Amino acid sequence: MSEPRFLEYGAKWTALLYGPLFALAGYLAELATGATHAVAWVLVGLGLAAITAPWVHARRRFLTVRVTDTELWQGRESLPLTDIAETRDVGTPAGARVLGGGWSTPRKYDELPLRLTDGTVVLAWAKDTEALRAALERS
């Protein structure tokens, strides 16, 4: 598989570090005051990392946007680039289908209307729609 033209992950695995870092800050605060509960803070850090892992996995699976030389991937749905006719000045009709299988564009993502070769309009989405558009327009 070739290098992607555009790749935007739904989440990064570094988010797993937030819980242990919070636990470390709590331990250091306790250390400054006297009595410490090291085992409890280790358990807190591990617990927070454990509940963050499924969240990161789900966001990476359903909110990753990737453009390769042949396809646009939105979450788990792919669209061949040959099916895209226009990326600029495409209006968004009511009821346009959102790529990726959702009912609406994911929160904190901008939408990019695409006209397909059959005349229908679908909504692609990304945090950086201009970079997505540029990747789709590259031949």
Results as ranks from 00 to 15, higher is better:
V121N: 00
R60A: 13
L72D: 04
P4Q: 09
G102I: 06
L79Q: 08
W41A: 04
E3R: 15
L21N: 05
W125S: 04
G34P: 01
T68E: 05
L7F: 12
E111A: 12
V122A: 02
W73H: 12
P20I: 11
E30M: 14
R115L: 02
K108E: 12
E86D: 13
D110N: 08
V65C: 09
R115G: 00
T87C: 07
S104R: 15
R66I: 07
L72R: 04
W41S: 05
R138P: 02
A50T: 10
T129Y: 00
L136A: 03
T117M: 10
G26W: 11
Y18C: 05
Y109H: 14
A40V: 12
L136M: 06
Q74V: 02
L16D: 05
T14F: 06
Y9Q: 14
W125Q: 12
E77M: 06
T87N: 03
L17E: 03
L31F: 04
L136I: 05
G91T: 02
L48A: 09
R133G: 01
T117D: 13
V98G: 04
E8T: 05
G47M: 03
A35V: 08
A15E: 07
L17C: 13
W41P: 01
T82R: 12
A131V: 01
D69Q: 13
Q74R: 03
R97F: 09
S104I: 11
D118L: 05
A124M: 09
G47P: 00
A11P: 04
W73T: 09
F22R: 04
P80H: 09
L132M: 01
R66V: 07
L7D: 06
A53I: 03
G26S: 10
G95Y: 05
R88N: 10
E30P: 00
G47Y: 06
T64L: 12
P80F: 06
V65N: 08
L16R: 07
L72F: 04
E71K: 08
G47C: 01
T64R: 15
W41V: 06
A53M: 09
T92I: 00
A85L: 13
